[in-house]
Design a protein around this nucleic acid. Structure first.
Length: 763
RNA sequence: GGGUUCGUAGCUCAGUUGGUUAGAGCGCCACAGUGACAUUGUGGAGGUCAGAGGUUCAACUCCUCUCGGACCCACCA
């Protein structure tokens, strides 16, 4: 006899253990109803799990992704696909280092007081702890991933793959080391990519200074010390009397200087006075002009954001405090023309700490995005664009495909080195003698191959974390093959679906596509399915500081994993952000309980004995228990527990045709990634058609001896089929009921997905 | 500056290629007292589908504009 209410806590842990022990999470295990002997002919279905960052336990946003992936995987497993869902963890270089440094700070420590080795070890330990917490949360949610293939981005086998790619790209001329201007975070002491900065609109004074015969505009007086070029548009009639290269002596901040006139099209005649001085070492546009014209490039600001000796009396001061002092001095010298106090402009900041970005010239490693591959093949960027054109990769929801294209078309070279310690070191050594650059994939090079000297200096930088995670789809498979001596890459690549949050479309998805074509010649996945961000009930982004973070484990404790899963996908279209209110989760717990009580009612009919086998709809065909090839007959094809000559009532016919429609709709919705529709269809059918209507009708029918057998048959059949359909969405409660009905030895996880029954059979 | 997207019941959202009385959850109102479930059932109130115009036999759905909101990318000294 089933208990009066479904208590997730009593079942979930045990059920997960049974699933895991059954081996069905691994693709190799075949369902009992599949043709067992002989080679495995099942078609593979692979999802590589986006590896959660190792810097924090997972939150409810991750839960959404795992739920979607688990639904797809469970569904395909029940359909007889050879499903591989490969879990892993990302060391998340910069992100993790930032989090860990904050933690150190709280403890009164700092990485600048530690050796690199000490820091790395401490961070490693910290990450291991988080990793285990995250993995536990994934289990609690019911994710049916293959833990035997679990992998970490810092596993040696992964690093090896990453290094091989680096070397190959270097040899192909796609990776180069450049002394270029880049986004520098003075707090974190590292370069950032375009994607790792953010902008904020601010109103700041805009100063107009007298610069010899000109008036120049600037928002950054503190950079003006090195300015010895004054630039204007070649066609600007206001400055026609000046010519290129003309030298002008003028009084400036720290005394007289000589300025050289440059005429360049980069100047916007409409902006300010149409004349500017340039600071090539600290401004991207200025740098571009200087590089193009071969001008001197002189640093003014150091890496910590302080002025260099070129600033004279201001040297050593922080830029912001120096700014007002410099303006004061210029004012005293009568060099301030006027000040626009309400100038609106965007300032660029570090996306992690909001420190103002200070453009700096730092040697960095770059990946060329638009340079053709050797042999006249398309560039990395074009490979990705072609993948979309040829539909080898399909981004579900056209709007994301548009955004993707737009970004790809405007992509710039990707700086992949970071001045941080946590991550994969760049496998390069420099010869102190002859300057040779040595790519050392296995760390075995001891002397310079050029001059044979042993004065080798390792590159101090680490990779941008996306350089490794961008290779994740094939790296995980290759690394597992290296570990276990298998050949999974050949079997499971390209993968079928990449399911992830839309906010890492550029960071991650774009790079995976480029890397994959480069290294394997194949797409990494056929479909990209993007989900939205989980927000709180007021649509606010969840964050620790706002205190509105929903902890998935707390929710699971209260309402059960099924309720959380269902709430996450119910009634939210793909890609849209999801407002998650506690009421919604509670409502879904009620649904799980409803399903439980439907089963409790049906199994309790009569003398309360559970009917041992699923029943069939509506064929009453005899079965010997084995099929023509001698294998056990699938349970759903077994003969009905009740035979006889009962007639179908209108209620019988209605529920069976509705069930048929539900099977069709749910399957169709899943095929097209409309998980929310599938969930809603099931909810409506099970609760409002099956429970509210048919169950009520059945109470009368069961009193009629002539209808009793067929009614029971139908109740069992509709229930069993509903459990199968609902299982991918609510795996625990359905498995729990299945166990109550048919025994724990028979797992719902590998029951056969129902296919629609021919309508003509309903008579 | 370029681009994307949204505006449907009090709230949060569905509505798949245009096709009969526009749906759900929560909330609200009335009734039902427990042999599946009160984590329930039955019934009900509540929407000019932001506004205007256009295409069409037919528009929540397609096109244009207006109003209002969200977001992404780029970034000019």
């Amino acid at each position: 006899m089933m208990e009066k209410a479904y208590d997730p806590k009593k079942y979930e842990a045990d059920i997960y253990r049974r699933w895991e022990a059954s081996g069905f999470f691994a693709p190799e295990a075949r369902p009992p109803w599949a043709d067992n002997p002989g080679p495995d002919t099942r078609e593979p279905y692979t999802i590589i799990m986006p590896p959660p960052n190792a810097n924090a336990p997972s939150h409810v946003g991750h839960a959404l992704g795992y739920t979607i992936q688990d639904i797809l995987i469970r569904w395909q497993r029940m359909r007889g696909r050879r499903t591989l869902w490969l879990p892993g963890t990302d060391h998340a270089g910069f992100e993790t280092q930032v989090v860990f440094e904050k933690k150190l700070e709280k403890e009164g420590l700092s990485r600048f007081k530690m050796t690199r080795e000490e820091f790395y070890q401490a961070c490693w330990d910290y990450v291991q702890t988080n990793k285990h917490i995250s993995e536990e949360a994934i289990r609690r949610l019911g994710a049916s991933c293959d833990w035997s293939r679990n992998i970490f981005t810092l596993d040696p086998e992964i690093i090896k793959v990453v290094y091989q790619t680096f070397k190959q790209m270097y040899d192909d001329g796609l990776i180069y080391r450049g002394n270029r201007i880049s986004h520098w975070c003075p707090k974190h002491q590292t370069t950032l990519s375009d994607l790792e900065t953010k902008y904020e609109e601010r109103a700041e004074p805009f100063y107009y200074f007298k610069y010899g015969p000109f008036v120049i505009g600037t928002s950054r007086p503190e950079t003006k010390f090195g300015d010895k070029y004054v630039v204007m548009h070649p066609d600007d009639p206001r400055y026609a009397k000046y010519h290129e290269g003309q030298q002008i002596n003028l009084e400036w901040i720290n005394g007289p200087i000589t300025a050289t006139i440059i005429k360049d099209q980069a100047v916007d005649r409409e902006f300010g006075t149409g004349v500017m001085t340039i600071t090539p070492a600290h401004d991207a546009v200025d740098f571009a002009i200087a590089e193009r014209r071969g001008l001197d490039i002189e640093p003014v600001i150091d890496k910590r954001g302080k002025l260099l000796p070129i600033a004279g009396e201001f040297a050593g001061r922080k830029i912001l405090e120096a700014r007002s002092k410099i303006v004061e001095k210029l004012q005293a010298k009568g060099l301030v023309d006027h000040i626009d106090k309400k100038y609106q402009h965007n300032v660029q900041m570090c996306y992690k700490c909001s420190t103002l970005i200070e453009p700096q010239i730092v040697p960095q490693w770059y990946v060329a995005m638009t340079k053709p591959l050797p042999g006249g093949r398309p560039s990395l960027r074009d490979l990705a664009l072609q993948a979309l054109d040829k539909k080898e990769v399909e981004i579900v929801t056209e709007r994301f495909a548009k955004i993707f294209r737009h970004w790809m078309e405007n992509i710039r070279d990707w700086p992949i080195s970071r001045q941080i310690w946590w991550g994969i070191p760049i496998p390069v050594k420099y010869c102190g003698d002859c300057g040779e650059i040595i790519i050392d994939v296995i760390g075995s090079v001891k002397k310079c191959p050029q001059c044979s000297r042993e004065q080798l200096t390792p590159d101090p930088d680490t990779f941008d974390t996306w350089f490794s995670s961008g290779q994740w789809p094939y790296a995980t498979l290759l690394a597992n093959d290296a570990k276990q001596g298998t050949q999974t890459l050949a079997q499971y690549y390209p993968t079928q679906v990449m399911e992830t949050a839309w906010d890492i479309l550029f960071f991650w998805v774009a790079r995976m596509i480029m890397f994959s074509y480069y290294r394997t010649g194949k797409p990494p996945f056929q479909k990209v399915f993007l989900h939205g961000l989980v927000r709180d009930k007021d649509r606010q982004k969840m964050s620790k500081s706002k205190g509105n973070v929903i902890d998935p484990l707390g929710v699971i404790d209260l309402y059960g994993a099924d309720a959380l899963r269902f709430a996450l996908i119910f009634s939210t279209a793909a890609g849209n952000d999801i407002p998650l209110a506690e009421d919604k989760i509670k409502g879904m717990k009620h649904f799980a309980n409803k399903v439980w009580n439907i089963a409790r009612y049906i199994t309790g009919i009569g003398d309360g004995h559970v009917i041992p086998a699923p029943v069939s709809f509506p064929r009453k065909r005899e079965s010997t228990g084995v099929n023509s090839s001698g294998n056990p007959v699938p349970a759903s094809d077994w003969i009905p527990a009740f035979g006889g000559d009962d007639k179908w009532t209108d209620a019988d016919k209605l529920i069976l045709s509705q069930l048929n429609q539900t099977i069709t709709d749910v399957t169709d919705n899943l095929e097209n990634f409309r998980l929310h529709e599938a969930a809603q269809t099931l909810y409506d059918f099970i609760w409002h058609e099956f429970a509210d209507k048919y169950l009520e009708a059945s109470k009368e029918q069961l009193k009629n001896e002539a209808l009793k057998n067929s009614t029971l048959n139908n109740l069992y059949f509709v229930l069993a089929t509903s459990l199968k359909l609902l299982h991918p969405f609510m795996p625990f409660v359905t498995e729990a009921i299945w166990g109550e009905m048919y025994g724990k030895e028979r797992l719902l996880i590998v029951e056969k997905w129902s296919s629609s029954t021919d309508e003509s059979e309903v008579v």
